[in-house]
């Protein structure tokens, strides 16, 4: 007994001296992320500046001087920006409406997890048939008399956009919901007691508190849409109208075996994402200059 008391005293003394062994538990995780995330990233950055031929920036010069490659940035943006606006635009009012803990909220969140979990490959396979010329979607539109002949929605831009909505909207909804439920409802109740209507409560209580979170959601939603890959191949027209930047990177690496160019394209992809994220965060800064934390937990 006396021995174990002495042992615990030593342990407490050790903690006070700053050699807390518990902190060391974080080391394997940190090493792992450095080795398999940070290192490959830096390696890729280095590799992108050691091209197969030409000077150190030859890959980047090639990317921006070859329309077949540089065009992919605009192709990707023309999918990612509308998809993000649609998804966040619909997710915000819906998540706001369901902000109180309730049975419908749980059921809807549970159902919306399904398309996220199934993932883009399965959604693409389903949409290929569902949106196809003989699919249920076109049949329903004809049945309701909205169209006379089937609309072409697969193997083009629209199919890919739809797939981005099917997997992106639930993701944004759940993310916004988690931010909204972090706002203390007592604040809105106080505003209501002081005579604020629903619209006023949304604009003057929720929106300012939500702005930082909303900017983060928008960034994540954009980054997710910008990295569209399997559905652009399966559901789009990967040779032209939906030849997105990930396809260019994939082809460079796995069809031309030019890992240097592929790394350069991956770096350009990250750079474009960073630029958009910076723009979104600076727009948020223009509109909102209060304390960022607020009532959010």
């Amino acid at each position: 007994m006396a021995g174990s008391v002495a042992k615990s005293t030593v342990w407490i003394a050790g903690q006070n001296a700053g050699v807390d062994r518990t902190v060391l538990l974080v080391v394997p995780g940190v090493l792992f992320v450095i080795l398999l995330f940070i290192y490959p990233f830096l390696y890729g950055l280095g590799l992108s500046f050691t091209p197969k031929e030409g000077g150190f920036a030859a890959n980047y010069a090639k990317f921006f001087s070859t329309p077949y490659l540089s065009q992919t940035i605009w192709t990707t943006l023309s999918l990612a920006i509308p998809a993000t606006v649609i998804n966040v635009g619909f997710a915000l009012p819906l998540a706001f409406h369901l902000r109180h803990a309730s049975r419908p909220q749980r059921i809807i969140s549970g159902l919306l997890v399904v398309p996220i979990t199934l993932g883009t490959v399965l959604v693409a396979e389903g949409l290929l048939t569902y949106l196809g010329p003989q699919g249920w979607f076109n049949r329903a539109l004809i049945e309701f008399g909205l169209i006379n002949t089937p609309v072409k929605l697969t193997h083009n831009y629209w199919g890919v956009l739809m797939s981005l909505v099917v997997t992106g909207f639930p993701f944004d909804f759940l993310l916004i919901l988690s931010y909204i439920t972090g706002i203390d409802p007592a604040l809105a109740q106080a505003a209501a007691t002081l005579g604020a209507g629903p619209i006023q409560r949304f604009r003057q209580i929720y929106l300012p508190l939500l702005a930082p979170g909303l900017a983060v959601v928008f960034c994540l939603a954009f980054v997710l849409s910008f990295s569209v890959f399997p559905s652009a191949i399966l559901l789009g027209n990967p040779a032209s109208s939906t030849r997105v930047i990930t396809i260019a990177a994939y082809q460079a690496a796995y069809e031309d075996y030019d890992y240097s160019l592929a790394s350069a394209i991956a770096m350009i992809m990250c750079a474009v994402q960073l630029v958009i994220v910076a723009v979104v965060l600076s727009i948020r800064g223009l509109f909102y200059r209060g304390p960022a934390g607020g009532a959010k937990g």
Partner: peptide, 24 residues
């Protein structure tokens, strides 16, 4: 810094870091 290190792989889309990772 450690928290940020753990958040990064969840924020960056897999396809962006997947190609350098596959190369390594």
């Amino acid at each position: 810094a450690v928290m940020l290190l753990f958040l990064l792989p969840l924020m960056v889309p897999p396809i962006s870091y997947g190609i350098p990772l596959a190369t390594v």
